[in-house]
Computed example of a mutant assay.
Amino acid sequence: MNLVSIKNLTRVFDVSKPWLNRVIERLPKRMLTAVSDVSFEIPERTTYALVGESGSGKSTIGKMVVGLLRPTSGNVEIDGVDLVTESDAAVIDRIRTDIQMIFQDPFASLNPRWRVRDIIAEPVAARGGNTDGLAERLLEQVGLSADDVNKYPHQFSGGQRQRLCVARALASEPKLIVCDEPTSALDVSVQAQVLNLMSDLKEVHGLTYLFISHDLTVVRHMADTIGVLYLGRLVEEASPDALFTTPAHPYTAMLIDAAPRLDAFGREVEPPEGEIPDPIDPPKGCAFHPRCPLATDICSAERPTLQPFNGGRVACHHAGQVALKGAA
């Protein structure tokens, strides 16, 4: 059963200059499409990872899923309830108790003036729940000491602070946790500890993760399904094994080739060509065609749609014609 169902999700931002400046300078409105027509599903107790370059729309999707941003169009269904169209406040409130988010920066996402006990218990206390012993129990679950409940965030290391964020996310017993680059601000050794903790907690609590990351090495070991975003659109979706061995989209292959590999010391790989286009004025047709080595006339004229391919989905006119440059 799918816990999350995202359908045709789109978010457009107005990045125009103030009205008076536009009138004086005779400038039109400028609209930035951060996410465009994205659809995917997340079955219960699985991890769906979103990857892509900075500016591809990963975090915007995460914020729309948890309700921090309202979609311009499309639907976000959690446990069968569409949070975009649902009008019953009680139903929305019930579903939102099942959703939590772990943010990228553990230094900024914790209130520096609150003690750990108050930080962890806040999601439960805000709804009048019983918080007796809650913080102590959750601290031990995430590998910290119950004696830390009276400390402040500045008394912890970066990895320990992220464990506090995990404990806070678990406090309301959620079904879905959106993880927005949860380890990017941490050292490599600490990243592994936090990721192992999250994997263990997923099994113990039956959690479902939407895992947002730019680190392909991380998502390869964390995800059950990986979605690749480019300029706000989903260009490929596949299992980790399929994605890393036989990528169907040239952008996916470019990302994999650019990623560091322990088994390929000294290899020479050409760096990715070009930069992600201006999302305010994207290229016509396939947005990746200016950087694509396989591009033909149809790529600049016609935008490909997501189609089933080798057990996954891909949006490419030349799907399956990709070869990894860095393959052993």
Score class of each variant (00 low, 15 high):
I6W: 04
D14P: 07
S16W: 01
S16P: 04
R22C: 03
I24R: 14
R30C: 04
T33K: 15
P43E: 11
V51E: 02
G52V: 12
G52C: 11
S56V: 09
S59I: 03
I61G: 05
G62M: 06
V66P: 11
L68N: 06
L68D: 06
P71K: 03
T72C: 07
N75E: 15
N75W: 03
E77S: 14
I78F: 11
D82A: 09
T85Q: 11
V91G: 01
R94L: 10
R96I: 00
M101S: 05
I102L: 04
P106H: 02
W114H: 13
D118N: 15
V124Y: 06
G128K: 08
G129M: 05
G129L: 02
N130K: 13
A135Y: 10
L139T: 07
E140D: 01
E140T: 07
E140P: 00
G143T: 13
A146K: 15
A146P: 08
D147I: 00
D147S: 14
D148S: 14
D148L: 13
V149D: 08
P153M: 10
F156W: 12
G159R: 12
G159T: 09
G159A: 13
R161I: 04
R163A: 02
R163P: 00
S172G: 12
P174T: 10
L186R: 10
D187I: 10
V188N: 08
A192C: 01
V194A: 03
M198N: 09
H205Y: 15
H205N: 12
L207F: 10
T208A: 06
L210S: 11
I212P: 00
S213Y: 00
L216N: 09
T217K: 12
V219L: 09
A223L: 12
D224S: 14
G227V: 05
L231W: 06
A238D: 11
L243C: 06
F244K: 04
P247G: 11
A258K: 10
A259N: 01
A259G: 00
R261E: 01
L262W: 02
D263M: 06
A264S: 14
V269I: 15
P277C: 05
D278S: 10
C286L: 10
A287Q: 07
T296E: 15
D297H: 08
E302F: 14
R303E: 15
P304D: 09
Q307K: 13
V314N: 05
A315T: 04
H318C: 04
A319N: 08
A327D: 03
